[in-house]
Amino acid sequence: MKMKKTAIEWTIGAAAVLAAVGCATFPDAQETRGTAESMVKASFTAPTPNLLKRLDQDRAQQICSKIGKAELTPAEAAEVVKLSRASIEYPKSGKFAGNWKAGAKLAYDGGGDRIQGGRLEKRAHNGGLCQNCHGLEAGEVNVGNVGPALTGYGARGNSEAIAKYTYERIYNAWTYFPCSNMPRLGATGHLTPEQITHLVAYLIDPQSSLNRK
């Protein structure tokens, strides 16, 4: 008899505490998603309706938007990898390594395609953005570290296999590291296949300033 009463008292007590802190009244994940996605639709402007589509998530981005400490399941990781591999477009020339000097210019170029004051920063080609996150040439101080340092990348050789792998890593990094912080530069269209071949050359050409000691 006494134990039953205690159980009831505990339940009432717990419920009272929960009500007091309002645990029951935070919106759940599904409701939050609906609210937030509606907010996205109503919170941005762009010079053309087409540019607003930049806010739409593709399937891989949706998977990769895990909240807090939530982790990718093996199935999700596999799906992102599969989608990424399918996205890869190879250069028309058939050559994975282009001109390293052109690549060097690209690697240090952080501009292109931003939207401000109702205008699109349209240039012939977008910058590679590489220097923002990666250390590039030896001895530089002004280097980011969001990504690994690429100094001396050419030490791993410049075979066809390495050139192809490097091309794929830049075109769509998620092929090898699903949901990586690295932008899928080729797959999203930020860079063209030809531009990526120049970046590949910048990384693997033994003559490249990136590989100079």
Binding site: F26, P27, T32, R33, T35, A36, M39, V40, R54, L55, D56, Q57, Q61, C64, S65, K66, I67, G68, D113, L129, M182, P183, R184, T188, G189, H190
Partner: peptide
Amino acid sequence: KAGEYLFFRRSGQTD
């Protein structure tokens, strides 16, 4: 909660 969701939301050509 919406802000938390948006903080982790990846989109655009930079992902």
